[in-house]
Design a protein around this nucleic acid. Structure first.
Length: 277
DNA sequence: CCTTAGTCCTGCATGC
DNA sequence: TGCATGCAGGACTAAG
């Protein structure tokens, strides 16, 4: 599933290729992918030029010269391709023909991906929390959490921090030695600090490695991200913890799988460690 | 305030 | 071999 690092990788790859290119042709194969009337969608894009491509949380943002912005959320299986293989074609949902014979294909096996258009001047994606790439930003968020919800649930809440998903939340909690069920408002200052250090580091490392491929995620060139081999707990249920050799456990928290090491992420005991406000 | 369950979808694994 | 079943999973929504 594409999270912040995977989306950043795709944005970095798309940027030099489609910046300055004009949309010459549009084909919508699966209308629900487009969160708008297909005619309005076509009208807004056709004949217009991509000026800037950025990322916000797990969204790609394509700005046009008109000031409109096209945001794309890849959800689980969304990908952009320039050279789809034969077998990809049944899963192509939207096609954008650009200048110079360049064609951008949006492939999405499970059809959960969504594209949305924003009028000029409108603030994009207002529900999203801050970007989690700076330690101080993350620390400010984590130390002021009021909710007793499990920290794992809170890290996945995009209104709290934008861009962290299941993989990197599990990895950060492991590296910080925090049990995923720890109440968000019960983090010690030390835990909040440690998580704040780890989250940006993990995300930046994953960007360097061009993301984590579990099954579907591919870079625009169709290759797999290299970050899978750096994972400590995600998808390693039953395998030995890289630190203490204890089997990595899996549990379900709020309908999401959580992977953790019971020894390295032992819950704090009531007798010790939990600080008052 | 919070949690749970349903929805969207398909491919794959499992069981018989 | 093939058919049925169930599961995963971001974000959103409705219900409790």
């Amino acid at each position: 599933m594409p999270e912040l690092p995977e989306v950043q990788t795709i944005v970095d790859e798309l940027k030099p290729l489609i910046n300055g290119k004009t949309v010459r042709e549009i084909s919508i194969r699966w209308p629900r992918t487009v969160d708008a009337d297909p005619e309005l969608f076509t009208e807004t894009l056709l004949g217009h030029t991509f000026q800037r491509i950025t990322r916000r949380g797990k969204y790609l943002c394509f700005y046009l010269e008109t000031g409109h912005c096209l945001t794309v959320h890849l959800r689980m299986t969304g990908t952009f391709l320039f050279q789809p293989a034969e077998k990809d074609h049944t899963h192509i949902r939207v096609i954008l023909g650009l200048d110079d014979g360049l064609t951008l294909y949006f492939k999405d096996v499970r059809k959960f991906g969504r594209m949305k258009l924003w009028p000029p001047g409108e603030r994009l994606l207002p529900h999203l929390g801050p970007e989690p790439l700076e330690e101080e930003t993350v620390f400010d968020v984590l130390r002021t959490l009021k909710s007793r919800r499990a920290i794992k649930t809170v890290l996945l809440d995009q209104t709290v921090l934008a861009g962290v998903g299941n993989i990197y939340a599990d990895e950060a909690l492991f590296q910080a030695g925090v049990h995923p069920l720890t109440p968000a408002n019960g983090l010690t200052t030390r835990q909040a600090r440690e998580l704040s250090r780890r989250i940006p580091r993990i995300l930046k490392q994953a960007i360097k490695n061009k993301g984590t491929t579990i099954s579907d995620y591919r870079t625009t060139e169709g290759s797999e991200g290299g970050n899978r081999f750096f994972l400590d707990v995600y998808g390693r249920t039953g395998e030995p913890c890289r630190v203490c050799k204890t089997q990595v456990e899996r549990m379900v928290i709020n309908n999401r799988s959580a992977h953790y090491c019971i020894l390295c992420q032992a819950p704090l005991r009531k007798s010790g460690g939990i600080r008052g406000k």
